[in-house]
Simulated scan of single mutants.
Amino acid sequence: MKKIISLLAIISLFISCKEEVVKQPNPLIEKEVMVGIMYDLSVLEAIRLENPASLDTFKINPKKYIYKKYKIDSLQFIKNNAYYASDYEAYASIIDQVNSKLITNKASVTALIKAEAKKKKKKKKTVVKPVSPPTKLIDSLEINQRKRL
């Protein structure tokens, strides 16, 4: 009898732990879209930390930009973020995807920066030095100046 009661207690414990802590919001933002939102937020936050004046110069409000781009509002984002955060494995998966996307794009940006630096070096090497004027021209100018004196 004790075994049956302890077994029922364990089963009820597992069933009660399986309940969703946060209910699924309506409408639910798809996981892939949430990855895009989190990626864009990460990039905009990095821009804000690296060069705060750049966002002000172009009058970009990161949150408004995200809401407009993904056609969501702040409440919808907050509810969906809380929903995904309540499921540790799903949220960790989203964060891992954002991280891998950031690493991939960092590599491509680094490659572009190196290519641009090579172009600038090449351009500096191929700069044509100004050619000195022909000596006859200088001589004729000097002669004209001497005549004036």
Rank of each mutant, 00 (worst) to 15 (best):
V33P: 05
N144G: 06
N105L: 04
K122W: 06
A92T: 08
V109M: 15
D40H: 10
P27S: 07
K125P: 01
I95P: 00
N144V: 11
L8F: 05
Q97G: 00
D87A: 08
K64T: 13
N80Q: 00
D56Q: 14
I11H: 07
V128Q: 14
Y70P: 02
Y39E: 01
K106Q: 12
L49N: 14
S74A: 11
I143N: 15
L141K: 15
E116R: 15
S100R: 06
T135W: 13
A117S: 09
P62F: 08
L44C: 06
L8M: 12
I37Y: 00
Y67W: 07
S6G: 03
N105M: 13
A111T: 03
P130K: 14
D96W: 10
K63S: 06
K69N: 02
I5N: 12
C17Y: 06
S100C: 05
K123I: 05
L141D: 11
L102F: 00
I113L: 11
I95M: 12
P25M: 02
V21E: 15
S74D: 11
Q24L: 10
K121G: 11
K123P: 06
T104N: 15
T126D: 10
A115I: 03
K68N: 07
S74R: 09
Y39F: 05
K18I: 13
F77T: 09
I29S: 04
I4T: 15
K64L: 12
I29R: 10
V98M: 06
L55Y: 06
Y91R: 02
A85W: 04
A90Y: 01
V43F: 02
I94L: 00
M34G: 01
E30H: 11
I95H: 05
L7M: 11
N81V: 09
D139E: 14
E19T: 15
A92F: 03
K23H: 14
I103H: 11
I143K: 15
D96K: 13
C17I: 07
T110I: 05
V109H: 03
Y65M: 03
N26M: 05
K114E: 13
K79S: 01
S54Y: 09
N61W: 01
S108A: 08
K136Q: 07
K3Y: 06
A92P: 03
L13P: 13
F77I: 04
L28M: 07
K125R: 06
L8G: 12
K68G: 06
E89Q: 12
T57A: 14
I78D: 14
T57Q: 07
A117P: 00
K136A: 11
E32K: 15
L8P: 00
K125D: 04
L8K: 15
K64S: 10
M38G: 04
Y88P: 11
D73L: 08
T104Y: 14
D87H: 13
V109C: 05
E142C: 10
K106Y: 15
A46R: 06
L141M: 13
K31S: 02
K122Y: 04
P27T: 01
V22Q: 14
Y84T: 01
K2P: 00
K125L: 05
N61Y: 02
